[in-house]
Design a protein around this nucleic acid. Sequence first.
DNA 1: GTATTTTTGTTGCTTTAGCAACAGCTAACT
DNA 2: AGTTAGCTGTTGCTAAAGCAACAAAAATAC
Lengths: 230, 230
Amino acid sequence: MDVKLSLQKINEIPLFDGLGSDEIKEVLTKANALVKHFQKSDYIFLAGDCVENLCVVINGTVQMIKEDIWGEKSIIANLGAGSVFAENFLGRRGDRSIVSYFAASDSEILMLPFGKMMTGGDNKLLQGKLACNIVAILADNNTKLIEKTEILCKKTLKGKILAYLEQEAASQGSRKVVVPFNRTDMANYLDADRSALTRELSRMREEGLINFEKNVFELLDKTDKETAKQ
Amino acid sequence: MDVKLSLQKINEIPLFDGLGSDEIKEVLTKANALVKHFQKSDYIFLAGDCVENLCVVINGTVQMIKEDIWGEKSIIANLGAGSVFAENFLGRRGDRSIVSYFAASDSEILMLPFGKMMTGGDNKLLQGKLACNIVAILADNNTKLIEKTEILCKKTLKGKILAYLEQEAASQGSRKVVVPFNRTDMANYLDADRSALTRELSRMREEGLINFEKNVFELLDKTDKETAKQ
DNA sequence: GTATTTTTGTTGCTTTAGCAACAGCTAACT
DNA sequence: AGTTAGCTGTTGCTAAAGCAACAAAAATAC
């Protein structure tokens, strides 16, 4: 992946929406931005790390994860190209990340060391279109987290699965959904046991609720009166 | 609650941190801000409503909730004085709220109709200290939602309870925690069955993990070797 | 092409926790 | 004071789902 292609992609990320190439270059320079490469299964940040970089996925997939002391892994969010992450240091809670960020595939990450830059006197970066974009992106990240809680709040695994597939169907604009996880990770995303997930998926297929092959799922809209409680 | 006291409180909210009284007045005027009163159990917004107001809790307590078609209620977040909510319209996902906001007690809410104001040409509000505050608050709301998912991702009710109490202990700075919920709402916050919660709490008291009386909980740090899996 | 690792499905067992129903207690309203 | 409504704890029953272990299949490495 050469630098030119990266620059091309950097011009297209939502964070720089509406900014000209010159303005983007100015921001990248002022902020001392750099692109880092991570290999599949690398940790980008570990929970507890000091983070002062606004990060953008240029290429690849990053998972926001939390692992507990027993090794139980929870995937909180799955971040594709264009996603902004690790923004929490912009708040007033200090700069220690409470979650880890993990390269689910080989990834290029744009790192913007905005640590003090947001407040820093003369060359203040937080203004104009960029400020708007940052606010919009933070608001959207917020919405995504609320959506995630709407999956996890379901009391049954079946309810979680359906909530998740419905969300994906809505965002992918199709009742046929490509899930960006293998079974193990899908279970970790839904915070369920993998074997229980497989079992429940088969059951739901038997019920005629869904169909699936590997990681492609189809929601079969049962007009059936007996749409049982999820 | 007279207007003067409200103005006093408005000067102290984190959103206006670092702004002078004059600047605050200017923002309130430019944005056509107003304070609305809600009675206990009023809905401030319903899921699906069009929302174009940045809202701040001046007085009282607001719950971010999601109710499904079977009346199952989930409390996503509990918002006290100073909290900013309903900010999701600032993103690019449209202005329909996916959650409801509910007055858990009589409340005064500052409404800032920032709908178009953030982008609006001449009298742009998103700049300077206010912009920084908004970014910081959104980042913190984000952190709070991540913390919430760290409760919900636990596979057992005991794990959820402990994760919740630990979080509250950390934020309240004491192993003695005042929970801002009655049992029913605590169950809805943890997305568990109320009777199961009561049962598990008693069990945990028997185990010597916690102590509690009504909504005051104490975390008893068992140095015990057999700190069982949560 | 073979070997090794990872992923997936399956199943038995056991624990967990949801649900429903009820009774006692508290708080609020008149 | 008396009535009503809401909150809390309790318990039996049952369904859900976690866990462990294994084998087949797929992917990766050598």
